[in-house]
């Protein structure tokens, strides 16, 4: 089983990101489960969501405490929220991070990947210029860092889930898939 935790802010589509992943994995024949941190949603507040992917039916309904992957939709959360809490040694972290800035001050023991999903989403006109919606772009990046998930089913599930600007969202995810890169510390 692989377990994924998503961090973002209310309004960024964190829960939808987890659902895009679940839908994509389901299309690939996996059993899936995706759930938000059971909170009260408020715009701007830190939001957490989770996903489980496995070959056999998923019966566990308890929360995820030791994820294999962490996806951070908003780099400002690196300060303030312990996004690495419980992450398995060697676990992978995908961060929406500004292209030009170097990623520093993060602990070793994990693999870090960055993608400037904000610029990509904004270039494709997703959300508003002040608040681009990055969930679809970052899921393109996830297909890059996760060996079990392919990009095509991710794009397919974005096509199904995106309420508006479907092809823009798909293009953003594809671009993010191509540009996601590992950061060596």
């Amino acid at each position: 089983m692989i377990e994924v935790r998503f961090h973002g802010r209310g309004g960024q589509g964190v829960v939808i990101a987890s659902e895009v992943l679940a839908e994509a994995a389901f299309k690939m024949g996996f059993e899936v489960s995706a759930f938000p941190f059971f909170g009260v949603e408020r715009r701007g507040a830190p939001v957490t969501a989770y996903a489980r992917i496995d070959e056999s039916p998923i019966r566990i309904k308890s929360s995820i405490y030791e994820p294999d992957y962490v996806v951070v939709l908003d780099s400002s959360l690196l300060r303030g929220v312990d996004v690495l809490e419980g992450l398995k040694t060697g676990g992978r972290v995908l961060i929406n991070y500004p292209e030009a800035s170097p990623l520093d001050g993060v602990p070793s023991g994990f693999k870090y990947y960055v993608i400037d999903a904000t610029s990509i989403a904004s270039a494709h006109g997703i959300g508003s210029q002040t608040a681009p919606i990055v969930n679809t772009a970052i899921m393109g990046g996830f297909a890059k860092i996760c060996d079990k998930i392919d990009i095509e089913p991710i794009l397919e599930s974005i096509r199904e889930i995106a309420p508006v600007k479907v092809e823009e969202n798909v293009a953003a995810a594809r671009e993010a898939f191509e540009r996601t890169r590992e950061v060596s510390l």
Binding site: S18, A22, V32, S33, A34, F35, F38, K61
Partner: peptide
């Protein structure tokens, strides 16, 4: 249905 654990959890 259990609140959130079923109500908001996506499953096949």
């Amino acid at each position: 249905e259990d609140a959130f654990i079923l109500s908001h959890t996506s499953e096949p």
